[in-house]
């Protein structure tokens, strides 16, 4: 089967590329576009390491086809830090030592950002359930939860 032409917005910029019909968005981002900030942990939607925003919805990019993103808007970890530097969540992850190996971190930051945009004042339980789709094997989640709580306080101020 021949490749499909796709035009999509990624982190505010228009990208055009050719895509195998069976290629996942994760493969498109990493292999076709070289955006390796989005990580593969499982490829089956169980670990959240490949989390991205697709038209404002939090998705596992391994469960979306690249061709499906035509005409849509994607936000990846590469777009989280802005002209003012790191996003508050990124800063708080660093301050709280909320990462050890760091491979799950891009997914956690995308997912936590989606949570705080929807619910600026989540309880610990709400944070834990929202992030239950993101696996971390290093931290036991303690410092991640605290970083998100602290970021929520700063973002509300």
């Amino acid at each position: 089967m021949s490749k499909v032409h796709v035009a999509t917005q990624i982190n505010g910029e228009v990208h055009e590329f050719l895509c195998e019909p069976e290629e996942t968005l994760l493969q498109t981002l990493r292999d076709t576009l070289g955006m390796t900030g989005t990580k593969e942990g499982c490829g089956t939607g169980d670990c959240g390491a490949c989390s991205v925003m697709l038209d404002g919805a939090l998705v596992c990019s391994c469960l979306v086809l690249g061709v499906e993103t035509s005409g849509k808007e994607i936000e990846t970890i590469e777009g989280v830090a802005g002209e003012d530097g790191l996003h508050v969540l990124q800063q708080k992850f660093l301050e709280h030592a909320a990462l050890q190996c760091g491979v799950c971190t891009p997914g956690f930051i995308i997912a936590a950002k989606a949570l705080l945009e929807k619910n600026p004042d989540p309880t610990e339980t709400e944070i834990r359930y929202w992030l239950a789709g993101n696996l971390c094997r290093c931290t036991g989640y303690d410092k991640i939860i605290r970083a998100v709580q602290d970021a929520a306080v700063t973002l509300r101020a």
Binding site: E78, L86, L94, T105
Partner: peptide, 9 residues
């Protein structure tokens, strides 16, 4: 090495 790990670099 933190900044590179929270930005995907």
């Amino acid at each position: 090495d933190g900044v590179d790990k929270v930005t995907g670099r």
